[in-house]
Simulated assay, not measured.
Amino acid sequence: MSQSRMRDNVERWLIHEGLSFEEVKSKENLFQILIKHAGQSGIPIEVFEPSAQPGIIVIGAKVVMKNNQIARYLGFNEDEKEQFEKKVSDYCYSIQAISKIITEDGKQKVGVYVVLDDKENINQQTVFDAMDKVSEMYDKTSRFLMKTF
Rank of each mutant, 00 (worst) to 15 (best):
E104R: 14
E28N: 11
S94W: 07
L14S: 11
Q53M: 09
I102D: 05
Q3P: 02
N67C: 09
Q83S: 01
D8L: 03
S89I: 00
F21C: 11
I45F: 03
M6P: 07
Q3W: 03
I102Q: 11
V127T: 12
E80S: 14
N29P: 05
L74V: 07
E28V: 03
D79W: 12
N9R: 14
Q40F: 08
R72I: 02
I70T: 14
V63W: 00
G55R: 01
E78R: 05
K27M: 09
D105S: 15
I56W: 12
E17M: 09
S94K: 09
E85Q: 13
S89T: 10
Y73S: 01
D90K: 09
I122P: 02
Y73H: 07
Q40Y: 06
K27L: 13
P44I: 06
L116Q: 03
K86R: 14
E120H: 09
V58F: 00
Q32K: 12
Q124T: 03
V47N: 00
E136W: 11
P54L: 05
K25L: 12
P44S: 11
A97S: 13
A61R: 00
I45N: 01
D129P: 05
R72Y: 04
S51M: 04
W13R: 06
S89W: 01
S51G: 06
E49V: 12
H16G: 09
M137F: 03
K109R: 13
Q125C: 02
F31C: 07
I122Q: 03
Q108C: 14
A61T: 04
Q53E: 10
Y93L: 10
N121A: 05
I57F: 06
E22T: 15
M6S: 10
V88F: 01
G55V: 05
Q124N: 03
T103E: 10
E23S: 11
I57V: 14
S26F: 02
I98E: 12
V64K: 05
K62M: 07
V63K: 00
I57R: 07
I15E: 08
D79N: 15
N67G: 11
G42C: 06
S4I: 10
F76L: 10
K147I: 12
M137H: 07
N68K: 15
F149S: 14
V24H: 02
V114I: 14
V64M: 02
S41L: 15
W13K: 04
K140W: 04
D105Q: 14
Q125L: 09
I70L: 08
A52F: 11
D129M: 15
V114A: 04
I98K: 14
Y91Q: 10
K25A: 13
G106W: 08
T148N: 15
E28W: 01
S2L: 07
M1C: 08
R7D: 06
V10M: 06
R5T: 11
K66M: 09
E46A: 00
V10E: 00
K66W: 06
L19R: 15
F76Q: 04
K86A: 13
K36E: 07
L30T: 01
A130F: 12
Q32G: 07
I33W: 05
V115S: 08
D90W: 02
F144R: 05
V47D: 00
I45L: 04
M131W: 07
D132P: 00
I98L: 11
V88R: 00
N9I: 08
D105M: 13
